[in-house]
């Protein structure tokens, strides 16, 4: 119980800290709206020019809902672990983290959880409500929302594990920007966050099926929109199974890698 208390204390501290950035909340909301408008106009122009209503099985509405919610999930899940860790390594602060009476992985996870809770209520939920109201019934409201929460939680864990798998690379290379940009580029493209996977050419799409990235955006969104039979348990469980599989595999790999990397820590400066 004290373990849980310690963790929820971190969550609380995270909530307080991110609320204190009062202006940031407002600006972020505004900027996200502009960004969404950009996405809207781009795809509207694309669909208008194509002359057909349905491309690759997706209508303009489908595509928009998908992309807007993908952006919302992106904001929700965004972590700066690679940055944080490489900064901590360069400043030598990493030692302090390692001395804390909680494993670094757990500590990082729980200290981000406050921001996640905030982002969920301040960014994701409003976006979702706006999308539901505007599209009038394009998103089914029912048991799929509950399934989505489960899937989203798994997506969060997968995403965290991808970060934690990549971050220790900077222990070996002292590279910050490089590692981060490689991770970000790969995840954004191959997870279907910038273009729905349905639009990918056949070969690429099949390749992506076997990678962990779709567990972050594509699966939760499919579940939320109740596509591909995910509104029934028989359709849902395999999808959650895939997410769970990646959670386990990535966290095992991440743990092994981290343990190896910690031994290698070479701290800069005195």
């Amino acid at each position: 119980m004290t373990g849980l208390k310690k963790k929820t204390a971190l969550t609380r501290a995270g909530i307080i800290e991110s609320l204190q950035f009062r202006l940031s909340t407002a600006v972020m909301l505004f900027a996200n709206l502009i960004y969404l408008a950009l996405v809207y106009f781009l795809w509207k122009a694309i669909y208008d020019s194509s002359g057909v209503d349905v491309v690759n099985g997706m209508t303009f509405y489908d595509t928009m809902i998908y992309l807007i919610l993908a952006t919302a999930i992106f904001n929700l899940l965004e972590m700066f672990i690679v940055w944080d860790m490489s900064r901590a390594i360069q400043s030598g602060e990493i030692i302090m983290h390692l001395l804390k009476p909680m494993r670094y992985r757990l500590y990082t996870f729980w200290s981000y959880s406050g921001a996640h809770v905030n982002n969920f209520f301040l960014s994701f939920v409003p976006t979702f409500i706006v999308v539901v109201v505007i599209t009038k019934g394009a998103i089914p409201i029912g048991i799929n929302l509950l399934y989505f929460m489960v899937s989203l939680l798994l997506a969060l864990i997968v995403n965290f594990n991808i970060e934690m798998l990549v971050a220790p690379v900077c222990l070996y290379t002292q590279s910050t920007w490089g590692i981060n940009i490689v991770k970000e580029t790969v995840v954004l493209l191959l997870s279907g966050a910038s273009i729905p996977l349905a639009f990918f050419p056949e070969g690429l799409r099949q390749a992506v099926e076997y990678l962990p990235f779709r567990a972050v955006y594509d699966i939760p969104l499919t579940v939320l929109l109740a596509k591909n039979g995910t509104d029934s348990l028989s359709g849902l469980l395999p999808k959650l199974g895939i997410q769970l599989f990646w959670c386990v595999l990535l966290s095992v790999c991440g743990n092994l890698f981290w343990n190896h990397a910690v031994k290698k820590i070479t701290v800069n400066g005195g």
Binding site: S175, T176, G178, T185, V186, L189, S194, I195
Partner: peptide
Amino acid sequence: ADFFISTFGMVLTNISGFITFIIL
């Protein structure tokens, strides 16, 4: 190491942007 990884990352970003472009 940082130099090479960063350069690789930059090339990858551009390729990824290009792929997005092509897919569209």
